[in-house]
């Protein structure tokens, strides 16, 4: 159940090394953005997204300002309908904001998508059932035109990284849910994007598997230095993983708090018992509660 450790030199982020600590309360404020624009993986200003439905307009996102530094691990947390997935999809250019501007590594989301800046991991593994595990990992590589030799190298490397060596020839249904999700992570890593966008990737898994994968994901992030944007509705998961927690609230979908999570980079589960961890978790919970107050 563990990601094998990979030497740091193998996987380098395309962005600069992790920037130093950033401001914690960006709500409304955009100060200092221009100065560090080069180091920002995501820079959103006044992003709104309104759906027209039969019952009228739905504000999925309202005036969202957010900066994510390269190399950060940022969790978006909030109840369902708060727009956290929508925000992730806007970053991925799967949805288009109706107002505001957003830049990914200094370019538009569309350009970032075309340049393959990110790997997207969905809640479901979404492996193609007619492809073996290795051919699933190879799929983005085929699309991006890597030759057979390079594909082989990367399949081996990333399946090993997620500890799925030996399962190359299996079909997805022959693997457990957790293994399938690990295969989908290997697939997202295979083309070595600078950023991982993860939409409740472990939401469908049981607690034990989830804990394991969280620990391994953290190690992976530490080794690769990738920027991770992680959607979740679990407070402990968010606090355990993140360098920054973005608390969101529904109707309209908006950011109500951005919490810097200054726990050490090397984390184990024991950290969950520390006062610092509990304090951050309490602030997240308080934020979630304040956003919910008029509702239910």
């Amino acid at each position: 159940m563990a990601f094998a450790s990979a030497p740091k030199a193998l996987i380098r982020p395309t962005g600069p090394a992790r920037p130093v600590e950033r401001a914690t309360g960006e709500i409304g404020g955009t100060g200092g953005q221009t100065a560090e624009a080069g180091a920002l993986a995501v820079s959103a200003r006044g992003v709104s997204l309104t759906y027209q439905t039969r019952d009228g307009a739905v504000e999925a996102l309202a005036n969202v300002d957010l900066q994510i530094g390269a190399g950060d691990f940022v969790s978006l947390i909030g109840p369902s309908g708060c727009g956290k997935t929508t925000l992730l999809r806007v970053i991925a250019d799967l949805e288009h904001p109706t107002a505001g501007s957003i830049l990914i590594n200094g370019v538009t989301p569309e350009e970032a998508r075309r340049q393959r800046h990110y790997g997207y991991i969905f809640q479901a593994p979404a492996l193609y059932p007619w492809r073996t595990i290795e051919r699933n990992v190879a799929l983005p590589l085929e699309i991006m035109g890597f030759d057979a030799k390079e594909r082989r190298r990367r399949i081996d490397k990333y399946l090993k990284l997620v500890n799925l060596s030996g399962f190359e020839r299996k079909f997805p249904w022959q693997l457990s849910g957790g293994m399938q999700q690990r295969a989908s992570i290997a697939r997202a890593l295979s083309f070595e994007p600078a950023m991982l966008l993860m939409d409740e990737p472990f939401g469908a898994l049981d607690e034990i598997v989830r804990d394991h994968l969280n620990e391994q994901l953290l190690r992976l992030w530490d080794q690769t230095g990738k920027t991770v944007v992680f959607v979740t509705h679990s407070i402990p998961e968010a606090v355990f993983l993140s360098t920054k927690i973005v608390v969101m609230s529904p109707r309209p979908g908006r950011i109500i708090d951005v919490i810097s999570c200054e726990l050490p980079r090397e984390r184990t589960f024991e950290i969950r018992e520390t006062p610092q961890f509990i304090k951050i978790a309490q602030r997240v919970r308080a934020g979630l509660r304040s956003g919910q107050s008029y509702d239910e």
Binding site: D93, L94, R113, R116, A126, L139, I143
Partner: peptide, 13 residues
């Protein structure tokens, strides 16, 4: 399903 198509889109297929 939509997820499978979205994946293709994220890879700019």
């Amino acid at each position: 399903d939509p997820i499978q198509r979205d994946l293709m889109r994220t890879w700019s297929a």
